[in-house]
Amino acid sequence: MLAIVVVAGALLADAASACTVCLGAQTEASRKAFVGTTAFLTFLPLMVVGGIIALFVRRTLAQEALDESRRAGDLDAGVESQG
């Protein structure tokens, strides 16, 4: 829903010449290039880092669980040898 509003709002707007010097020189192609590279630069790090972090957290949590179970195993063993 929010996404639709964002996209709709974004498309409604058109070139308002806030700065005649900059915008006057710009073509539609170059404005598209700005929008495209903005998206590229925004999402590339999020995807790369996100992927690495997801992998990392999964591995760490698995290992923590493993450690935990080993430690619990040690405890059990201790109890057994006592009893």
């Binding site: 964002v6 709002g9 806030a18 700005f34 903005t38």
Partner: peptide, 27 residues
Amino acid sequence: GVLSFTVWAHHQFISGVDPRMAHVFTL
């Protein structure tokens, strides 16, 4: 951290950025 990568064009609102982009960055 994630969002901080999605807001930077708010420094360029009057640098002639595409107003469609300005909308997204306002949000």
